[in-house]
Design a protein around this nucleic acid. Sequence first.
DNA 1: CTTGTTTGAGACATTGATGTCTCATATGAG
DNA 2: CTCATATGAGACATCAATGTCTCAAACAAG
Lengths: 184, 184
Amino acid sequence: MPFDRDHVLRCAADLLSHKATATQDEIAKAAGISRATLHRHFAGRDALIRALEDLGVRQLQEVVDQARLDDGSATEALVRLVESTRPVAGFLAFLATENQLFEGEEVNEGWARIDAQIAALFKRGQESGEFRIDLSPVWLTEALYGLVSATAWTVLSGKTAPRDYTEMITGLMLGGLERRAPQP
Amino acid sequence: MPFDRDHVLRCAADLLSHKATATQDEIAKAAGISRATLHRHFAGRDALIRALEDLGVRQLQEVVDQARLDDGSATEALVRLVESTRPVAGFLAFLATENQLFEGEEVNEGWARIDAQIAALFKRGQESGEFRIDLSPVWLTEALYGLVSATAWTVLSGKTAPRDYTEMITGLMLGGLERRAPQP
DNA sequence: CTTGTTTGAGACATTGATGTCTCATATGAG
DNA sequence: CTCATATGAGACATCAATGTCTCAAACAAG
């Protein structure tokens, strides 16, 4: 059986998502390979985590590119962005969480670039008059991560249907909780 | 120096918030006590984590009680709730995150009760007509945790001023991002 | 088929965290 | 002051995870 790097990383992420202290034996077992092979490709836990980060950032960057954040209205772009994150939301939640709890030496630069792109989207919406201007783009970016992560966890635990993912996040984020009279 | 249990737990939480794999030596050092004393009061890492959970749940329950979720409008109650979580937001973020990544055998029952109380608040707001009804109270509860945690991290990292905490969370959650014509 | 490469299984030593113990010192109650 | 108790510092054994190695078997390329 040929070695499938991405498959191994996905299995590792799935396992580490709910058991962050999993052993390399456990990770290897979850991926269906031997510990020796795991160690041949990822020399140590740190290397594995870094590879995991790289894959996550790569996937998320694809998602961001695919959402075309500069096209159309900022509102539409935000909806596209959230919708395209759905397939990688679990991975994203894991990475965002892991970044907090295991403060690495330096923050991945790809991650910082994604942050900047999303913050720029919020800023664009504010400058175009679509979004309120009393919430900082940097905080909005983190708030979006928070909502996406929280939703990903609830989907993983079965408390929420995956099909409601985009509606819930964009519904709350754009429209807010308050009920309003129908727009004229 | 007498042993200050809560102080030790707070120091442990602060440290573990950004270094989840901290050693007992490091935790003891951070708390200003010796490893021997730490081990006398918390026999092993698991015991420490459980004590941490208990303290967190106790604090959060106090906060929830203090916010009087049943009084006045649901909107006002939500604002009170968020405002009173501010002092314990870091702790809350740590616990919520830790609960995901280190899936304990059973979920703390006090935690489940708090969940239920907050979900009941959202339900009350929906039934009174204040809140929109197309977002489930369970998910809204998790979304609130997500926003609170995300904001707590940004405050801890200095990206956001603590004084904006309540405004940002309630501003986004209640009003949403879309800019609207002033209410008539 | 033959050859070179990769994997799986397991043994082994090493490392680091942990649990446990002792003893001197500090602290507080009486 | 005196005694009982708790703490700090450190030694020590233990245990789990890790890194490293060997060797046989599976596999792919030629």
